[in-house]
């Protein structure tokens, strides 16, 4: 995947992952892909809902040793 920017919000609790994600995506262009790396187990539901509401696409996600990675394409 062609990742434009990656942010590491591991260890941060709600609402920080979503606040940082929003801040990061604001600086990107449409179609750019943002990678979000987090340890917040609530992030999946949060980012899914947020991306849908904001018109971004959640392209893919993975979980490895309690670390979640999400790829969001700016809409």
């Amino acid at each position: 995947m062609n990742v434009t920017k990656s942010i590491d919000v591991k260890g941060l609790a709600c609402p920080m992952p979503i606040v940082q994600t929003k801040k990061a995506i604001k600086e990107l262009q449409t179609q750019d892909v943002l990678e979000v790396v987090t340890t917040d187990a609530g992030a999946k539901a949060d980012l899914t809902a947020w991306a849908k509401s904001q018109g971004h696409a959640l392209l893919d996600e993975k979980e490895e040793n309690d670390v979640f990675t999400f790829w969001i394409q700016k809409g």
Binding site: C14, P15, I18, V19, K22, W50
Partner: peptide, 9 residues
């Protein structure tokens, strides 16, 4: 928390 979340929305 809700205020910050809503701002992110």
């Amino acid at each position: 928390i809700i205020a910050n979340g809503a701002a992110a929305y």
